[in-house]
Amino acid sequence: MIYSSMECKIFLFGASGKMGSCFGALVSQTPPFSLTSDPARADAFVDFSVASALEDHLALALRHKQPLVIGTTGHAEGLLERLQTASFEIPLFLSYNFSLGAALFIETLSRFKRHFPKNTKIAIEECHHLSKRDAPSGTALKLAQALDFPPEKIRSERKEEIVGIHEVRLTSGGESILFRHEAASREVFAQGALSALRFILKKTPGLYTMEDLIHAKS
């Protein structure tokens, strides 16, 4: 589907969850978008449910030949290969964190990495609310990948009412640099997911990420 100013109906998986309800409220207040309970009428699908249901939700999007935005985390091994295969048929957008700031955070550290002294010590910490199921978070794993850092050394913490905090500390030669990203509310992720939805509605089949989105904005 090529996005236009006409009405765009979204079928939302996980609409009753914390993130799903936040995104649903935003969609309902943002014309020309609206929610539909009928997948046959959907112009796009958005998944904020649970990772274990993604295979079924992907199959539904493929059946209706409509784009799918994926916001679940903690996926099983082999999922990326499955998504890459499906992306030959429909546009897919996969993100573990829809915050544009978090995407820029990872991008900045990835580019900054080549300037690290060889003896630089890296520490990655993340903290989220108690109901977050996966640890480390998907964002922390992306940071570890960008910095060639062992994922098993990520420090994870769960506290009440913490939306999301990620910190990277670089220590070398008696000095340290602290990089920190904190999301103050789920609305940050909802806005980012809506930006991802707008982005993918203009795309041909393929697998897209926040990196594609921020590069398109630059």
Rank of each mutant, 00 (worst) to 15 (best):
M1I: 07
M1A: 06
S5V: 10
S5I: 10
M6C: 00
E7T: 15
C8S: 04
C8T: 15
C8R: 06
K9P: 01
L12C: 03
G14I: 01
A15D: 05
M19H: 03
G20F: 04
S21M: 05
C22I: 01
C22A: 10
F23Y: 12
G24V: 09
A25H: 10
V27R: 03
S28W: 00
S28K: 15
Q29S: 12
Q29H: 11
P31M: 02
T36Y: 10
T36H: 08
S37W: 06
S37Y: 07
D38T: 12
R41V: 04
D43W: 04
A44M: 10
D47V: 12
D47I: 09
D47W: 01
S52F: 03
A53S: 14
L54R: 10
L54M: 08
E55H: 13
H57M: 06
L58W: 12
L58Y: 10
Q66C: 11
Q66H: 02
G71E: 10
T72C: 12
T72G: 04
T73N: 14
T73Y: 02
G74R: 08
A76K: 15
E77V: 14
L79T: 14
E81T: 11
E81G: 00
R82F: 01
L83Q: 09
Q84S: 08
Q84P: 02
Q84E: 15
T85Q: 14
F88D: 13
I90M: 03
I90W: 15
L94F: 15
S95M: 04
N97D: 12
N97L: 01
N97R: 00
F98N: 09
L100K: 05
L100H: 00
G101S: 09
A102E: 01
A103N: 03
A103T: 07
L104Q: 13
I106W: 01
I106A: 05
I106D: 00
E107T: 06
T108E: 11
T108N: 11
L109C: 06
S110M: 08
R111H: 08
R111N: 05
F112A: 04
F116V: 04
P117T: 03
K118L: 13
K118G: 09
K118F: 13
I122D: 01
I124A: 02
E125G: 04
L130M: 11
L130Q: 14
S131H: 09
P136F: 10
S137N: 06
G138M: 08
L141F: 05
L141C: 09
Q145C: 05
A146R: 04
L147P: 10
F149R: 03
P150L: 14
P150R: 05
P150H: 10
I154E: 06
E160A: 13
E161V: 07
E161C: 08
E161T: 09
I162T: 12
I165V: 15
H166W: 11
V168K: 02
R169G: 00
S172F: 13
E175R: 07
L178C: 06
R180C: 04
E182A: 07
A183Y: 07
A184P: 07
A184G: 12
R186P: 00
E187P: 00
A190N: 07
A190D: 09
A190E: 12
Q191V: 06
Q191M: 07
G192M: 08
A193C: 14
R198I: 08
I200R: 06
K202M: 09
P205A: 04
G206W: 08
T209D: 02
M210F: 02
L213K: 03
H215I: 11
H215C: 07
S218W: 11
S218E: 15
